[in-house]
Design a protein around this nucleic acid. Structure first.
Length: 642
DNA sequence: GGACAATGTCATGCT
DNA sequence: CTAGCATGACATTGT
């Protein structure tokens, strides 16, 4: 039922549109109350076809009283005003906002050029003349404008941004166009419709054909934006843009950064741009639309992110896709005010960009190497040092153990305890990972020189004594376990023994046919190495805890001092208030008289304030009486106890 | 040579 | 049950 009502409502809307074209004005708001929210609200978002009919509403809401409802120039004028407001007030410069900014810019910056080229037509029609016409009526440029309109019947930009003063010839021409091909041309000036269409375009950016929305230089915007049913927009755009493929390649030609666009934006559109101005306006149109291709190109890579990126601030999107496609479309398409507002949008957009970039990185990493997923992480994986050349005697798997350079730096029990899935894959799965980020504390220990030295090959001293002096130095710096390992002809360094995964260690013990003494030594070396690192971590944690407690003590000391100061201040204030109260009481009591007309003695009476706000004069209790009574009660208590 | 800090090692409990 | 971790206690080493 609701759906049927909606269709009926939409049919009413279409009928209203047609009637408005004929000249009959129908206010459908009264018919639609209760089903749709107020039109002004709906107009803010691309929700339904109902947003296609804000003609007179816009006029009335934008001070358009008394104007003929079918004046397309006024439609464009109001739309431009609203677009400008949107550009300056919207929190997030979505794509359509950027387009609106471009249209507004056409109005404000174009010079009085009247050249016959298409681009110059856009400039001319949108130039300051419009404001002049708006201010003082118009008539001088009427013939020229009419010719222009007839020369460029399909140029929405040429006919749209005319001044508020209605040009009769242009209006007639536009009415012709509306009757012929574009019955809803007025809707082209509705930012709501633009939002809808553009959002639809953005939502389908993954479709290759919509890449060509942007570079269309001579696209018929009236036809494009006047589609009665928005569901047909895609099909129309597709059909339209299939004719414009030739212009696309030419349009995507420049690579200008956003910063360049911002810097040169004013100059490119300024009247002093000279010859470049006439030739660049059409290109500006392309470059503006090229931004759509920018988004779409990104959506090619990330189809699922198309909508999300569309919601990003425009500048951020440009930065995001800066390496992918050109950005020269910003050159002159947006004024600096728009950029300022875009830049003032805060860091949320940047965070969103970072998220997307991280997502891209994740995609890349997952696409090119899926290595960390099954990696058996180890301590040495943080450093990525090349494996020791002495692995000739080692197993192939042992060659993956990197020599540690930073001692216990980055030591993480959580990561280290993870065994690999396959021993054979260790050489590839042990990727450099900063393990220091995996633990909450900073294990920034410096390893002893022994551990820092690569112990690649540990020949038995009896078999292959070292010949160079470096070996003697090594002997002096070797730890006891290193010496023992050398003495026992164990072909692994202490670090390798300690840091290899358990499975790897077991494999080594099994495959090398070690003697029981060697196996015991290997296990002891591994245990001691593990415990050494654990002790280092433990001491580090202890020091951190001590430091934290010291800071806590200092903080509590400061808090105590502050509270004591507040206490002293409060006591001082209370004393002052009590003194004032006492003075006031004496003053009041001195003015009071008893029943016999004698003044009250302030020492014998006091003022008591009741809960109800009443002040009562009460005699002061004699301390002697109360003291004696207290003593009596105390004596009675003592007697009872005895 | 003793004090002290840093580090290594062992024993033990826990996961 | 075993490997590994955490930690107290003791030993070692260097200053």
């Amino acid at each position: 039922m609701q759906i049927a009502k909606k269709y009926l409502t939409e049919g009413l809307i279409q009928l209203t549109i047609l009637l408005s074209l004929v000249g009959v004005r129908v206010d459908i708001d009264s018919y639609l109350t209760g089903y749709y929210p107020p039109l002004a609200e709906i107009n803010l978002g691309p929700s339904s076809a109902y947003t296609q009919t804000p003609f007179h509403v816009l006029r009335e809401t934008l001070d358009g009283y008394g104007v003929h409802p079918k004046c397309p120039e006024l439609d464009y004028f109001f739309a431009s005003r609203r677009l400008l407001d949107e550009v300056r007030t919207l929190g997030s410069p979505r794509f359509h906002t950027q387009l609106n900014a471009w249209l507004v810019h056409q109005v404000s910056s174009a010079g009085p050029s009247t050249t016959s080229t298409t681009s110059s037509d856009h400039d001319t029609s949108a130039g300051p003349e419009s404001t002049e016409d708006e201010a003082g009526g118009a008539g001088e440029h009427l013939p020229v404008r009419g010719q222009e309109v007839h020369r460029q019947p399909n140029s929405e930009l040429g006919q749209g941004p005319c001044g508020a003063g209605a040009f009769l010839s242009e209006e007639e021409a536009q009415i012709k166009e509306e009757e012929e091909a574009v019955p809803l041309a007025q809707l082209a000036h509705s930012s709501t419709l633009e939002q809808e269409s553009l959002l639809e375009g953005i939502g389908t950016l993954s479709e290759p054909v919509l890449h060509h929305v942007a570079p269309a230089t001579d696209i018929d915007w009236n036809n494009l934006l006047s589609v009665p049913d928005l569901d047909d927009l895609d099909s129309l755009v597709t059909g339209r843009l299939s004719e414009l493929d030739s212009d696309i390649n030419g349009a995507i030609s420049q690579d200008v950064s956003l910063h360049d666009a911002m810097v040169t934006g004013g100059g490119a559109f300024g009247p002093a741009s000279g010859t470049a101005a006439s030739g660049t306006v059409g290109q500006q149109r392309r470059t503006l639309l090229r931004l759509e291709s920018t988004n779409s190109s990104l959506s090619d890579h990330l189809p699922g992110m198309a909508v999300g990126l569309a919601a990003l601030p425009f500048a951020s999107v440009c930065n995001l896709t800066g390496n992918m496609t050109s950005q020269s479309g910003l050159d002159g398409c947006l004024d600096e005010a728009v950029f300022d507002q875009i830049n003032q949008l805060g860091l949320e957009s940047l965070d969103a960009i970072d998220d997307h970039l991280n997502y891209l990185d994740c995609l890349d990493s997952q696409a090119f190497e899926d290595l960390d997923s099954d990696s058996g992480l180890s301590l040495e994986s943080s450093y990525g040092c090349p494996v020791s050349p002495g692995s000739s005697e080692m197993s192939s798997s042992s060659s993956s153990y990197y020599e540690e350079e930073g001692g216990a730096t980055g030591y993480s029990s959580e990561v280290d305890s993870k065994p690999p899935k396959s021993i054979i894959d260790h050489s590839t799965t042990w990727q450099p990972v900063d393990l220091s980020e995996s633990v909450w504390h900073d294990h920034s220990y410096t390893s002893p020189p022994v551990l820092s030295k690569p112990f690649l090959r540990l020949p038995c001293k009896t078999e292959e004594p070292e010949e160079d002096g470096g070996a003697q130095l090594d002997d002096r710096e070797l730890s006891r376990d290193e010496m023992r390992a050398r003495a026992m002809c164990i072909p692994f360094s202490v670090l390798q023994i300690v840091n290899m995964p358990v499975e790897e260690f077991m494999e080594v013990l099994d495959s090398h046919s070690f003697s029981p003494e060697q196996v015991t030594l290997l296990r002891d070396i591994r245990r001691r190495g593990k415990n050494k690192l654990a002790a280092q971590n433990c001491r580090k944690r202890k020091l951190d805890a001590i430091t934290g407690l010291q800071e806590e003590v200092e903080r509590l000391h400061a808090q105590r001092e502050r509270l004591l100061r507040e206490k002293r201040l409060t006591a001082k204030t209370m004393g002052a208030v009590a003194h004032q109260f006492k003075q006031l009481s004496r003053d009041v009591l001195s003015r009071l008289r008893d029943a016999s007309g004698r003044p009250l003695n302030p020492d014998r009476f006091t003022l008591q304030c009741g809960a109800n706000g009443r002040v009562v004069v009460q005699p002061v209790r004699q301390p002697s009486v109360s003291t004696s009574a207290g003593k009596k009660t105390d004596k009675r208590k003592k007697e009872k106890k005895q």
